[in-house]
């Protein structure tokens, strides 16, 4: 057993255990953190498969951005998930039964055993390029059109979020920095000439 294989089994086991705890722990914050662990272990598995760029992207994008956002939402909403899970034990036998039947059906239909083929040659290595170089070329040459369309989909998400959430409220007190800067002394201070009040008797 090589060192790589040991590493693979270790990371795969951690990923599977963490994924299991995502759906089984009571505290949603802990569940989100377990999901982070799952992503992290999977990134390590990808590193073993020499897909460095994807591994780094997974950690940066999913762990760094998406999951942090998730944690914020979970903490802010403070959802009590326990009522949602009521009856889990009651429905467990039925669920397991259906899952087993489906698994057996799919294994028989697809015939997984007959399909065990060794993975093909690494396309990046075959082209004599680094992993990220090969990925970049494929993405911006062969898959250029889908790549751009995916960018459009993100734009639509951005545009759609505006009418669904933006509310113009009246009567809220906000600062206008422009007007704050433009303000002159005369607008704020009023000098009033008054007679001195010295000739009045001081009260005892």
């Amino acid at each position: 057993m090589t060192f790589e294989l040991v590493c693979f089994y270790a990371f795969a086991a951690v990923a599977a255990l963490a994924a299991l705890s995502v759906i089984s722990v009571r505290n949603p914050v802990v569940a989100a953190l377990c999901l982070v662990l799952t992503f992290f272990s999977m990134a390590c598995v990808w590193l073993l498969a020499q897909a460095e760029f994807l591994a780094v992207a997974l950690v940066l994008v999913y762990v760094g951005a998406v999951m942090v956002l998730f944690l914020f939402v979970v903490m802010m909403l403070d959802v009590d998930l326990v009522p949602l899970r009521e009856g889990f034990v009651k429905f467990l036998p039925v669920g397991i039964g259906i899952a087993v039947v489906m698994l057996v059906e799919m294994l028989m239909l697809i015939g997984v055993r007959a399909m065990q083929v060794a993975p093909g040659p690494d396309p990046a290595a075959a082209a004599g390029k680094s992993n990220i170089g090969w990925l970049g070329e494929v993405l911006f040459r062969e898959f250029l059109l889908p790549f751009e369309v995916a960018a459009l989909i993100l734009t639509v998400g951005l545009i759609a979020a505006v009418p669904l959430t933006l509310r113009h409220r009246r009567g809220i007190k906000t600062q206008n920095p422009g007007r704050q800067v433009m303000v002159r002394r005369e607008d704020r201070v009023r000098l009033v000439k008054m007679d001195a009040e010295g000739n009045r008797e001081a009260s005892p």
């Binding site: 989909i153 639509v156 759609a160």
Partner: peptide, 12 residues
Amino acid sequence: LGLELLALSSYA
């Protein structure tokens, strides 16, 4: 991707 562009706009 074309389908998703259509669908996402339609949901909104």
